Simulated assay, not measured.
Amino acid sequence: MATTQRRKPSNPRGRANVIVAGRGVSGGNRKRRPGKRPRNRRYPLSPARWWKRAGLAQRVAAVLVTVVAAACVVALVVGTVRVVQWRRDVQEAEARQLQLTQQYDFNPGDIISDGQFFNANAMSEAEVQSFLDKQGAACSGSRCLKTMTFDTEDQAANEYCAAYEGARKETAAAIIDKSARACGISQKVLLTVMQKEQHLVTAVDPTGFQYKAAMGLSCPDDANCDPAYAGFFRQVYGAAHRYQYYVAHESAYGYHANALNYIQYHPNAGCGGTNVYIENKATALLYIYTPYQPNDASLAAGFGEGDSCSSYGNRNFALIYTNWFGAARR
Rank of each mutant, 00 (worst) to 15 (best):
residue 3 T to I: 13
residue 8 K to E: 06
residue 9 P to R: 11
residue 14 G to I: 02
residue 24 G to W: 05
residue 25 V to A: 13
residue 29 N to K: 08
residue 30 R to G: 07
residue 30 R to N: 09
residue 32 R to Y: 11
residue 32 R to N: 14
residue 33 R to F: 13
residue 36 K to I: 14
residue 37 R to F: 12
residue 38 P to G: 15
residue 40 N to F: 15
residue 42 R to E: 07
residue 43 Y to A: 14
residue 43 Y to E: 12
residue 48 A to Q: 06
residue 50 W to Q: 15
residue 50 W to N: 11
residue 51 W to P: 05
residue 59 R to H: 14
residue 61 A to K: 14
residue 62 A to C: 11
residue 72 C to P: 00
residue 81 V to K: 01
residue 104 Y to D: 07
residue 107 N to M: 01
residue 112 I to H: 03
residue 112 I to Q: 04
residue 114 D to R: 09
residue 115 G to M: 11
residue 118 F to W: 10
residue 121 N to P: 02
residue 131 F to V: 03
residue 135 Q to F: 12
residue 136 G to A: 12
residue 138 A to V: 05
residue 146 K to A: 10
residue 147 T to V: 12
residue 149 T to D: 08
residue 150 F to S: 02
residue 155 Q to S: 10
residue 155 Q to N: 14
residue 157 A to V: 06
residue 161 C to M: 02
residue 166 G to N: 10
residue 168 R to H: 14
residue 168 R to Y: 08
residue 169 K to M: 13
residue 172 A to L: 04
residue 172 A to Q: 06
residue 176 I to T: 01
residue 176 I to C: 04
residue 178 K to T: 05
residue 187 Q to L: 07
residue 189 V to I: 11
residue 204 V to N: 08
residue 206 P to F: 03
residue 209 F to A: 13
residue 217 L to N: 00
residue 218 S to E: 14
residue 230 A to I: 02
residue 240 A to I: 01
residue 243 Y to W: 15
residue 245 Y to G: 04
residue 247 V to H: 02
residue 253 Y to D: 00
residue 254 G to I: 04
residue 257 A to L: 06
residue 266 H to F: 08
residue 277 Y to T: 04
residue 277 Y to M: 07
residue 281 K to T: 08
residue 282 A to F: 04
residue 286 L to N: 01
residue 293 Q to G: 06
residue 294 P to A: 09
residue 295 N to Q: 09
residue 296 D to A: 14
residue 299 L to V: 07
residue 302 G to H: 07
residue 318 A to Y: 03
residue 319 L to I: 12
residue 321 Y to K: 00
